[in-house]
Write a protein that binds this DNA or RNA. Structure first.
Lengths: 334, 334
DNA sequence: TTGTATGCGTTATCAC
DNA sequence: GTGATAACGCATACAA
């Protein structure tokens, strides 16, 4: 592998001059430029980024930490992150944490050891204090989830009002007994969606009871299980269900259909996220659409601003969501 | 940011000794070890990987190039790659090429400029010669797709026999008019699946005709369009369809159902890949399952072997696929 | 067991 | 406009 030295020797100039040519410095004469370029060509020289990065103390890499890339919601966000990263000469180090704190910490070493210039978290496993401390030292952005009172930038949607709007829509269709499929965790999104759900019921004068809420783990099968629980109380089955993930909504629909119910004829179901498969299901899913790609783009923009030093204090950004009405919801018939 | 120098000064030793401690060299006395460790603690020193990497001329990074991460088939493969990479201290640089050759070349600079030690390609855009040449200089592995006569390692499945088996299964169910939804590209998988399909028909004494094949682009909507084309020839609609992607299969089913047909009652549909959503659809999809995670794992293992120099010549690995029979296929009723 | 000195490949400062 | 040289942070061959 030829180095800058080899090029210099071959072109009969100093390494400094070669470096100038590589970096398009204006103060290089036309003739030496050509000499150097020719040497570069002939040797098929490529600057070693390790040397350059060390010298410049920059890596142009960022960490993207998420539970798992094989979740279409996250992978679409990553797409947005990558787009903006690329436009700005940055590359992405993909970090599947499987929601394990040791794995997360392992990856964070890449930040502390200066191999990456910043990090974007989807759903961190480390706690608020640890994250806040990290954020004081390094450029950090949270995407979708965030922590209150934490010293960390984030970009997300208003989960409270999104849930409120979804449930309000169901209420507008005449539904009076509306179940929710939530998850057992302390994510801010989970908490706020539950609050939005409750508030919508309350504002409509509908009674809320804890057993209107079943919990899953965002996945298809857990949606089926939750739906089964609803069906268990024969005389008191909801006429509509609000699930906090599309996969759980699809699972619930599957279960209802298997039990001879029509969706939305007998029961309406609404999901959350608007993953690609939401509009492929039968019935196509009514859902709260999160601007996944845009969330990623904004997160990366925010991170860049921090890396560049344009932003000193944490900043929060809320993007618009959208209630997308498809086929899985309809008028209440009872 | 403290450097190894600072630690050395604080501990009253030389940088060499600090380096030894960091790298767990056995030849360091118990007492100096403690002194150094304490200095490291107090300064919160973290070795700068840029310096280390330059010195060691290693980066422990690999490129993963794919059309788009927001395709569940690829993202699951990436999961496998990442698992093995992590186990071996390697990190993944994610490269969405959007199937654009300029983007691909841009990312490949990271290989040529020695920021990454190897690359795994899912569906390369560059041509065979360019890839072969690259593979002569750098560790390269192709995953799923590959090119005949190319000087490149790959891991894949036997697409010919997989397609053959799928179609043979449909034939076994009594189907005599079997359509195919393929794609318009020159991927080896596409070519071989078509060959497998034709051979199965032929071996069963069924007639093949080019208009039994409709083309899409792997996506849901294109599956719908293909199905529409089948329905267009009123008196000659197939009783079964073999699609080379699950999303197209799902699209086709959607279209058939919308046209009042029952699946599998009136028409059977079989997909390919076995993405997560295949088993979430209604009906659950019968499909050829590719071992996605394992494909990724094997690809990474192969790449590691090349990086380490254990393998000199390109090697090819074929993994087992599996025909998974679910709900979208049934006996032919005509 | 420890220290000295050198080099990894590049960029940047300073002379000329 | 160009060259000599130091420096980025670390690991290691060689001496001691």
């Amino acid at each position: 592998m030829p180095t800058i030295q080899d090029v210099a020797r071959k072109a009969g100039v100093s390494v400094a001059t070669v470096s100038r040519v590589i970096n398009n410095s204006p103060s290089v004469s036309e003739t030496t430029y050509r000499k150097v370029m020719q040497a570069i060509e002939e040797l098929d020289y490529k600057p070693n980024l390790l040397g350059r990065n060390l010298r410049r103390t920059e890596t142009r890499m960022i960490l993207v930490l998420l539970p798992t890339i094989s979740n279409p919601f996250y992978s679409k966000i990553v797409k947005g992150i990558e787009r903006v990263a690329r436009e700005n000469g940055y590359n992405i180090l993909l970090c599947n944490t499987d929601s394990r704190v040791e794995t997360e910490r392992e990856y964070l070493k890449l930040l502390k050891n200066r191999l990456s210039e910043g990090a974007i978290f989807m759903a961190p496993v480390i706690d608020r204090d640890e994250l806040s401390e990290l954020s004081r030292k390094y450029p950090i952005v949270q995407c979708c989830e965030y922590m209150e009172e934490a010293h960390v930038s984030y970009v997300t949607i208003d989960n409270f009002s999104a849930a409120y709007k979804a449930v309000q829509y169901l209420i507008g269709l005449g539904h009076k007994r509306i179940g929710m499929i939530s998850c057992k965790n302390n994510y801010i999104s989970t908490i706020q969606r539950k609050e939005g759900y409750k508030k919508a019921l309350e504002d409509a004068g509908l009674v809320f009871s804890e057993d209107l809420i079943k919990v899953g783990n965002y996945g298809f099968k857990s949606g089926i299980r939750a739906a089964k629980q609803f069906l268990a109380k024969k005389d008191n089955v909801p006429t509509a269900v609000f699930a906090i993930s599309d996969s759980m909504a699809i699972g619930a629909i599957r279960c209802f259909k298997e039990n001879g119910m029509k969706v939305p004829g007998d029961i309406s179901v609404i999901g959350f996220d608007d993953i690609t498969y939401a509009s492929m299901y039968d019935p196509m899913l009514t859902t709260v659409s999160q601007p996944q790609v845009e969330l990623g783009c904004e997160a990366m923009e925010l991170l860049l601003a921090q890396i560049r030093g344009d932003i000193k204090e944490p900043k929060s950004i809320f993007l618009d969501y959208e209630l997308i009405i498809r086929e899985s919801t309809g008028l209440c018939k009872v």
